[in-house]
Simulated assay, not measured.
Amino acid sequence: MRESQLFETTPGIKHVITVNAETFHKIRKDSRLKQIINNNLATIDGQIPLWLFKCKHKGTSITKIPGSQLIYSVSQWAAANNKKVFLLGGKEPSNALAVVKLREKYGVSIKGFSPAFENYPFKSETNLRILEQIKEFAPDVLFVGFGMGKQEYWIDDFKDELEHTGVKLVIGCGGSFEFASGIIKRAPVLFQKAGLEGIWRLVSEPKWFRVKRLFISFGIFYYFVQDILSPQ
């Protein structure tokens, strides 16, 4: 998908999935997530998935479009076109600060809401509160930062309700609010180009789940070789 496709006027609601290395592990065991990705628009989020995709599909013109990039370009576009943006999810401090910083940077009409952490599926009261917040603000663009998988299920489950409120574009963006808030710094460009963003994130936020996620992400090489060697 090209970034320009996001801003093209089309009927209905657009659901964009940012596919990172961890996604390739998840879709091996999760047929529903794979179907959601196949049925919607997808971008490549990560240098290593980009390299492997280009290696397998030689001659394909594709670029990396991570959620942490989209949150800026879409906010800028929204401000220029009198559109409203809503940030859903993430940690409460990062969500609130991302709203402030994006509003200050672009002058965009923006609001956010961060519900307390729950495993998915959420309680009905949680979903009702989320939808009420969105309906009240009536955004054109919705960023959902529940993490890969959970955010895709939620968007898919409530796509009709979101479209009914007037949302035209919804993007699953993982931890992008933490970057937009400045609480977590993005990896230096050198790290990004070398495909070492996961290691940078681990150093910035040294937690056990980051270690596990990093090992899971490295599994993309195994899946790549398996796909190459498997009969067509």
Rank of each mutant, 00 (worst) to 15 (best):
G12T: 06
G12M: 10
I13V: 13
I13K: 03
K14G: 02
K14N: 06
K14V: 05
K14W: 03
H15N: 09
H15P: 07
H15D: 05
H15I: 04
V16A: 05
V16Y: 05
I17C: 15
T18G: 09
T18R: 12
T18H: 14
V19Q: 03
V19M: 07
V19S: 07
N20D: 15
N20K: 04
A21R: 00
A21L: 02
A21Q: 03
E22H: 12
E22R: 03
E22S: 03
T23G: 06
T23Y: 15
T23Q: 08
T23K: 01
F24H: 02
F24W: 13
F24A: 01
F24I: 06
F24Q: 00
F24G: 01
H25R: 03
H25W: 12
H25A: 14
H25C: 01
H25V: 04
K26W: 00
K26L: 14
I27S: 00
I27R: 00
R28I: 14
R28D: 09
R28P: 12
R28Y: 13
K29V: 06
D30Y: 07
D30I: 01
S31W: 03
R32K: 15
R32Y: 14
L33G: 02
K34F: 10
K34A: 13
K34H: 13
Q35K: 12
I36P: 02
I36Y: 11
I37E: 00
I37A: 10
N38C: 06
N38I: 05
N39L: 07
N39I: 05
N40P: 15
N40R: 09
N40E: 08
L41F: 10
L41Q: 09
A42E: 05
A42R: 06
A42T: 04
T43V: 07
T43L: 04
T43I: 03
I44H: 11
I44L: 15
I44E: 04
I44T: 10
I44D: 02
